[in-house]
Amino acid sequence: MKAVVTVIGRDAVGIIAGICTCLAGRGVNVLDINQTTLQDLFVMNMLVELGENDFAALTDALNAEGERLGVNVRMQREDIFDAMHRI
């Protein structure tokens, strides 16, 4: 299953490293990344392949990592964006 991970928060050193380490430790492959900073705001979207991971458990792990880094992390299935924006 593919999902979109969105990370938003105040820019700081180590956000990408923290999130990617969290994903890599669970065997989640990152397929694509979009990242920008708007003034001090860090915004990143990642397309990931969950593999055998349980969705709820991975969400909890990402939320915990987000809390440690002081950023907001959410993971949503890719389908919702496809349904809304592609015919």
Binding site: T6, L31, D32, N34, N45, L47, I80, F81, H85, R86
Partner: peptide, 15 residues
């Protein structure tokens, strides 16, 4: 494998 939807579309949905 690339994003099929753009960054702005993702943010629009979340907003």
């Amino acid at each position: 494998m690339k994003f099929e939807v753009g960054k702005n579309e993702i943010l629009e949905t979340q907003n």
